[in-house]
Design a protein around this nucleic acid. Structure first.
Lengths: 323, 323
DNA sequence: CTGTTAGCGCATTCAA
DNA sequence: TTGAATGCGCTAACAG
């Protein structure tokens, strides 16, 4: 910057202003300075600026993984919106582990982000304490709960379980099974489903829960294990569409007709209300729209808006009817 | 930090050392200082440190979009590896637009990243010049070319086109079509395919290229357009698996048997050598492994290693045979 | 409208 | 092994 100032024959302060607050600089001076900036290929050091202004224009996004469309689509949407507003995004995948989230958060806090997006509402006491003390805008996404840190954008996973139970029970399904991984939010959907079914008089729900990543294999193994154990489910609620695809594959290889003999219900369907896969029913969440809401909520907070408590985003059951 | 120093009864320099280079500090002092750090919940300001050391421990990753598993899986892998090595990742989605890439790069360069990951090898002259002048480690991923900026990790999209042409031509397919979006790398695969087919005596290849995002709809519309125009392809090469799924759906709705009447070939198959979808053939790329290679190459450069030119990662044609 | 002074929070480089 | 002075590159606040 000093070099630019020298070459332009002005002080560094004028260069700084020409770049950051051009309206404060005489037009002729400004044009000249900016021309020099361009010719020298000068790019201001944001970190130095951040140090001086105590605003980093950086946002941290912590989420389990981006190798899963349900998250990556939301993140894409969040980053895009924030980027347009002049914020850059630091992405930290926690791998569903609270300890990891804690370590990552510590590392990221070192960059003094202006705002933070977290996934879910279950955080270690350490994290909650730190965040509360920092008085930094935080948006918790993908979930709603009573213990809100700041702002939450998402939906109730309990409601999903209940809605699924009600919908398919009303259609006459009585033999249920659940297949998936032990993701905390998936488990909440599952437990809520089971509780509701019990109220409806269905007491037996077979479960196949794996402590691995959500891959196709989980679905294959899950259905195989169920059938080999003698279960004959009419409907299977999976923890994600990925898992559901595995169930479909296993069903196909065993010549089980879907959805006629077996209804397979996934979760996610990021394609927003369209069936992305033949034969598969799903609980559809509009990840892109949710990402948008997250970004908007965060931006309002960043611009000094007050806390907004909760934003309830919607979900929808898309059922593949028997043919 | 001053507060910590005060409370611990030492100078700020000792606090700094206790944290960054503990081996330089007397054990008793160190333990005491670190205890105070912990008790106060102090997190060092990385930006200030970066300003002083001129090392940001920040890596920028520019890629078209993360809302596409072929990228998100690679990025997940890159971030994970870099994170373990103490680097944080700034993610910038360019939306396939070179101008956007240029703007984003400028913004990101302001944070003085220690390294950069770019997607593809086609960059504006501006970008090439800037990067060359900065002498900052750059890894170009997902592609190989002759004009290398620094290090490249990827595979030749021309080779993909040739391999596909050879493989399916040898199986007897003569009626070809291509459906997809105008992503530059997809177009290279496509053109290479067509050129090779011409060498093999196939002169007519129907094309349906859309200038939109790679959605399911592209595939549906693409196949519909082909058929409505009277084309009767035996094999369709799609720009991605997502598009291929759309082709499958349209084929299903028209009662066209896949792969018996029509072979559908996608691109991506991130599940690493397994068929993720029934009836779909695909060119399988191991995105996770590629991400790993990208991270390793970048880390070697960050640690002072010399340029390594190119790392050729593999791809594989997975064919769904007729039943 | 422009320049000067001071300091953001840390680490390098000496000296003790 | 520890501390003091200095500067990293920028901007807030004030003076001119």
């Amino acid at each position: 910057m000093k070099d630019v100032a020298l070459k332009a024959g002005v002080s560094v302060m004028t260069v700084s202003r020409a770049i950051q607050r051009p309206e404060l600089v005489n037009q002729a001076t400004r044009e000249h300075v900016l021309e020099v900036v361009r010719s020298m290929g000068y790019v201001p050091n944001i970190m130095a600026g951040a140090l001086a202004t105590r605003k980093s224009r950086l946002v941290a996004i912590l989420l389990p993984t981006i190798a899963n469309s349900i998250y990556s689509i939301a993140v894409q949407s969040i980053i895009g919106r924030l980027s347009a507003a002049g914020y850059q995004s630091l992405v930290g995948p926690t791998g569903y582990s609270p300890e990891n989230e804690e370590l990552l958060l510590d590392a990221i806090l070192g960059r003094r982000p202006d705002g933070i997006v977290l996934t879910g509402t279950l955080h270690t006491p350490n994290i909650r304490a730190r965040l509360a003390a920092l008085r930094i805008p935080v948006v918790e996404a993908w979930d709603l709960s009573d213990a809100l840190l700041d702002t939450q954008v998402g939906f109730s996973h309990e409601k999903v379980g209940i809605a699924v139970a009600d919908h398919f029970h009303a259609k006459g399904y009585r033999q249920w099974a659940v297949v998936g991984i032990d993701d905390p939010r998936a488990m909440r959907r599952c437990h809520s489903l089971i509780a509701r079914l019990q109220e409806l008089g269905v007491s037996q729900v077979q479960q196949q829960i794996f402590a691995t990543e959500a891959t196709w294999e989980v679905g294959r193994k899950g259905l195989a294990a169920l059938l080999d154990a003698g279960a004959r489910p009419q409907v299977i609620f999976c923890s994600s569409d990925t898992v559901a695809l595995g169930v479909l594959a296993e069903a196909a290889s065993r010549k089980i007709a879907v959805p006629d003999e077996l209804a397979v219900l996934g979760f996610g369907n990021i394609s927003n209300g369209q069936f992305a896969y033949p034969a598969l029913s799903t609980v559809s969440v509009n990840a892109q729209e949710m990402g948008h809401q997250v970004a908007e909520a965060l931006l309002r907070r960043l611009e000094g808006g007050s806390r907004e408590a909760q934003v309830d985003t919607s979900f929808e059951i898309l059922e593949r009817e028997s043919t």
